[in-house]
Computed example of a mutant assay.
Amino acid sequence: MLQAEIKSLLKEDISILIKVPNSGKHYVCDCGEASLLTVKEAQSVSAIFISHTHIDHFANFDGIFRHQIGSGEKVVICGPKNIHQQVEARLKSYTWNLIDENAIEYEIREIVSKEEINVYTLHPPYWNTEFIKTQNFLFEDECVNVDFAILDHKTDSIAYLFKERDTITFHEEASGFRKGKWISELKIAFENNDPDQQIEIEDTIYKASELFHLLTKNEGYKLGVIMDHAVDERNYEKMRTVFTEADKVYIETFYKDLDQEFAKLNYHSFASASGKIMNECKVKEAIPIHFSRRYTESDQQEIETAFYKAFRES
Rank of each mutant, 00 (worst) to 15 (best):
Y27K: 05
P124W: 01
H290E: 12
S23G: 06
G32R: 02
I226V: 15
H229F: 13
N193F: 06
V242S: 02
S51L: 08
L37F: 11
I69Q: 02
I205A: 10
E41S: 12
H84Y: 12
Q301S: 07
F137V: 02
V87L: 13
K74H: 04
M278C: 15
N60E: 03
R234M: 11
L17V: 12
R294W: 08
E285M: 06
S93F: 11
M1R: 12
I48H: 00
A208H: 09
E245I: 03
K222M: 09
A59C: 10
S157K: 00
A189V: 06
I183C: 04
E261Y: 09
D247W: 04
E185M: 01
N128D: 14
F311R: 00
E173D: 10
E280L: 15
F139Q: 11
S15N: 04
S269I: 00
A310R: 04
D56N: 09
K276L: 13
V146A: 03
K264F: 13
F190Y: 15
K74P: 00
L98T: 11
R109Q: 06
A273R: 05
L9F: 03
N235S: 00
M227E: 05
P125R: 15
Y255G: 02
A263K: 05
E233S: 15
W182Q: 12
F58D: 01
H26V: 04
G79K: 04
P80T: 01
K238A: 15
I104A: 07
K222I: 01
E88G: 13
V144Y: 06
K92Q: 15
Q198N: 12
M239F: 08
N235A: 06
A263L: 12
G180W: 08
E191Y: 08
I289A: 00
R109F: 03
E172L: 10
E237Q: 14
I199W: 05
L122D: 03
T216I: 01
V144K: 04
S113F: 04
V283L: 08
Y27W: 09
F177A: 08
L161E: 00
